[in-house]
Design a protein around this nucleic acid. Structure first.
Lengths: 131, 131
DNA sequence: TTATGTGCAAAATATTTGCTTTCCG
DNA sequence: CGGAAAGCAAATATTTTGCACATAA
């Protein structure tokens, strides 16, 4: 799939950073990673490319509670679970739940469905110590 | 459940605004609504109270892709289904789906979970005529 | 009375945008 | 060469915070 009309070093590096991690990075985090390889890269370039890639379906912009946009290099349908205490975001694979939702909506006459599932709570670590 | 140690007019108005709507309002939107009743209310007060209420479980802070924090006055698990063609938004009550998701996450060690489900597709009307 | 909460404004964050320069095709 | 993309900085959100004053309990 095409990102834009040109292949630049910056664009390539940004995509690789997003794909290489399993966390759901913010633009700032991606910027810091890319800067290790291309020190003079600008934050604006990172923002512009993340926005472009998510509009083109190369990556996902995922819902988050942190007040920052978060991205995901895995574009296969899945959900997320986030921790209110430490901001960690994990992928969630519960096909049974997705299917129950999807088929109920199809029974109601809806078509071409995309399912977005966002759980939030306290992750195992934060549930233990009452931080 | 208690919000804070005092019941003020502002706090009450903010909570009512969030509970009265079915959309997931941003702080700015809540501020504009509250200002119709209390013109001199400050944005800082709205932010402080929304933050307090969501930490206390009175309302939910829901994950969003907009880069703004979004809230929800309905703390029972629920979802929405929206139509990409006509922008209609319906409530979605599929307890079986929510429970499958919730119990899977609890098995993984997460606690105090809230479940947010957003489906989008083409509603029955728009699926019929290819608008 | 007094500690909590509010208003106001400034500071801190996060994101977007305008404009010039760079460089891919 | 020509236009798309990068760099840089200024402009815009968005959210948080400090402090003086107000007020519920």
């Amino acid at each position: 799939m095409e990102i834009g009309s040109r292949r630049t070093r910056q664009r390539q590096a940004i995509l690789e950073v997003v794909r290489r991690t399993t966390c759901h990075p913010s633009a700032q985090w991606v910027y810091e990673q890319v800067r290790q390889e291309i020190p003079h890269v600008s934050l604006g370039t990172v923002y512009r490319n993340l926005e472009l890639m998510s509009r083109n379906g190369i990556i996902l912009q995922v819902p988050a509670i942190s007040g920052q946009a978060r991205y995901d290099g895995d574009v296969s349908g899945h959900g997320h679970i986030s921790c209110r205490a430490c901001d960690r975001i994990d992928d969630l694979f519960i096909e049974a739940g997705y299917e129950a939702l999807r088929s109920a909506a199809e029974d109601a006459g809806f078509r071409e469905l995309t399912v977005l599932v966002e759980l939030s709570g306290r992750c195992p670590d934060c549930a233990k110590n009452g931080s």
